[in-house]
Design a protein around this nucleic acid. Structure first.
Length: 559
RNA sequence: GUGCCCGUAGCUCAACUGGAUAGAGCAUCUGACUACGGAUCAGAAGGUUAGAGGUUCAACUCCUCUCGGGCACGCCA
């Protein structure tokens, strides 16, 4: 194959696009065709399958099979001698309702080793237009420690950032810090109450129900009492807020989650942006006064109710600065705005999008991912949580309990819009019940093969190109195929913004390795075969490391 | 009452957004190294996709209704 050949998936997509046009099937973009390519569930259906004829048949209401035949005929010259896919695709076939299946040549399958080597850390990067993405996530109010729900959002957002970056997008990650407002005021009162309990005279009233009840405030009060026993309310407010925020950032850092930017609501208020945004909305005629309040006519933009911007007491609602904040996201030039929110915010999406549409922005550029709740189990016992009651499980506790890798893996292993049952016992068990170890074990195992190889040869890798055609065993070919499917798994994760798609892929890759390993001894007296198998191991390891890295997991050499 | 998410093997979940014979892991049962890590590998069994209709070449997927679970529906944040 040629040196600068495009990845096979891209090459096939381009061939299909041209064939579709030539055969009168229709004009499609590369993106359209890429979406119609899939790795078939069953190997007998080929290495890559295209169902674009099925889609075309739907559009023009005719039988799909003849369309697939026409497409196949148009593709035929491309796999014949001199065609773009010559030597890479051995054959195609039309099957089922109208699938066009591609069967790779053995040379192509084997060439993934060279492709992994050549691409290095960029392996699997799809050919996409790079976008400027603002990814906002966690954004927990600094009124208490992060919970497991935040942990899930943190793992999801961080992994998503890694995936989008790997795909060539320019990503800025941001944490919106609600560092002022009603909840922070309540936090200040709560701390002051706790402080008085320590320094006296103790308050006679019981602690109001809406105060934050958690024990962490008692600890903070104890600390403050050493420094400033007579702290004013304002001092309490700032002290609690800042100390909690410091703790949040520490938790995130220990979870290996960092943000490019922390965006302060307080600073947003000082900047005058909120007023300017309101002015802009007024100028656009989407604001009106009623019942002493100021309203946004959000129903004109798809919301089911108009929303209050300024309450009759003169204060802004929560929405108002948030509108200004998102306006500022657009003003900073981001082409795609991704927000990860908890399930309690789903009703908020429509009004947020409406507000941005009202400002003249393209609301379809906003993608909101709702991360569903986490239910925590300790074996059979369910652990309930509630921030106010102070009876909750923190991200910190989960990290301490099960470790960072297992924690992140469990948060990511399910798709984010489904509830997650997180079994602490399972996550911390270092047994074969635990899927994260299965994947990491494959990586570590290869490391020890490498050590064996190094002992024999004095090198950790083949010194030059290997003869990959020596890899003939069905399980080896299977492993090579799975390595080549990384591209497909990554593209799926990028398109849907679902990191969990990498989990079954990596499990499959690890499995393909373990199976091949069980049948084929790597280091033998056959020098050429040993080199080829060693290269296969090293490429497998490279993709495992890459995939684990995209999930934010370590790739250990020993376990 | 209204909206959103969900209901798939004994358990936890997939099924590439409408595609091919609904797949994995665990649990259960049966097997496998005198060699590179047994945290591994091979095999068996397990299903009327909650239920009932509908749409079409094709439905776990879309529409309607019913049942069951979760989360939201403020001039709260």
């Amino acid at each position: 194959m040629s040196r600068a050949a495009a990845p096979i998936r891209t090459a096939i997509a381009e061939a299909v696009r041209q064939a579709a046009s030539a055969s009168g099937l229709g004009e499609y973009t590369s993106e359209d065709v890429l979406c119609a390519l899939e790795v078939p569930r069953e190997e007998k259906h080929g290495d890559l399958s295209c169902h674009i004829a099925l889609r075309a048949s739907k559009e023009r209401k005719c039988a799909p099979r003849p369309l697939a035949d026409k497409l196949s005929a148009a593709v035929a010259p491309m796999i014949a001698a001199g065609g773009a896919l010559y030597g890479r695709v051995a054959r195609t076939s039309v099957e089922g309702a109208g699938f066009l299946n591609f069967y790779y040549s053995e040379a192509e399958i084997v060439s993934v080793l060279a492709q992994v080597r050549a691409a290095g850390d960029a392996y699997g990067r799809p050919s996409l237009q790079s976008r400027r993405v603002l990814l906002e996530y966690v954004s927990a109010n600094p009124t208490g420690p992060l919970t497991v729900a935040h942990g899930r959002q943190a793992a999801l957002g961080d992994s998503l950032a890694r995936i989008l970056r790997h795909c060539g997008h320019r990503v800025t990650t941001e944490y919106y810090n609600n560092d002022e407002g009603v909840q922070i005021t309540t936090l200040g009162h709560s701390l002051q109450y706790r402080l008085r309990q320590i320094t006296g005279p103790a308050p006679e009233e019981p602690m109001p129900e809406n105060y934050y009840q958690g024990e962490y405030l008692i600890d903070i009060a104890r600390q403050l009492s050493q420094e400033r026993p007579k702290a004013t309310f304002e001092e309490c407010r700032v002290y609690a807020r800042d100390l909690i925020m410091t703790g949040i950032r520490k938790d995130l850092a220990d979870f290996d989650v960092t943000f490019d930017s922390y965006y302060s609501q307080e600073e947003l208020g000082r900047s005058g942006r909120v007023e300017r945004t309101l002015e802009e909305l007024r100028k656009r005629g989407v604001v009106y006064e009623s019942e002493g309040a100021t309203w946004l006519r959000s129903t004109d933009y798809g919301d089911d109710k108009d929303r209050v911007l300024i309450k009759s007491d003169g204060n802004y609602t929560y929405l108002t600065p948030d509108i200004a904040y998102h306006h500022h996201k657009f003003e900073r030039g981001f082409e795609e705005i991704v927000n990860i929110l908890g399930p309690d915010h789903h009703g908020y999406i429509a009004r947020l999008k409406a507000s941005q549409a009202a400002l003249g922005h393209d609301a379809t550029r906003i993608r909101v991912l709702i991360a569903q709740l986490v239910t925590l189990y300790e074996g059979d016992r369910q652990v309930r949580m509630s921030t106010r009651a102070g009876e909750f499980v923190t991200l910190r506790q989960v990290m301490d309990e099960v470790g960072r890798d297992a924690g992140r893996f469990f948060f990511l292993m399910r798709k984010f819009d489904a509830h997650l049952d997180f079994d602490l016992q399972l996550a911390k068990s270092q047994s074969m019940d635990n899927p994260v170890f299965y994947i990491q074990y494959a990586h570590a195992r290869i490391e020890s093969v490498t050590a064996n190889y190094a002992e024999r040869t004095g090198r950790r890798a083949p010194s030059g190109p290997v003869d990959a055609s020596l890899l003939k065993h069905p399980l080896e070919l299977r492993l090579l195929r799975v390595i080549g499917q990384f591209e497909d798994a990554l593209a799926g994760a990028e398109r849907t913004l679902e990191p969990y798609r990498l989990v079954p892929y990596l499990t499959e890759l690890a499995q393909a390795f373990h199976r091949s390993y069980a049948e084929n001894r790597v280091v033998t007296d056959d020098a050429a075969l040993t080199e080829a198998r060693m290269e296969l191991c090293l490429c497998t390891q490279a993709v495992l490391r890459l995939g684990l890295g995209l999930l934010g997991l370590s790739a250990p050499s020993k376990m």
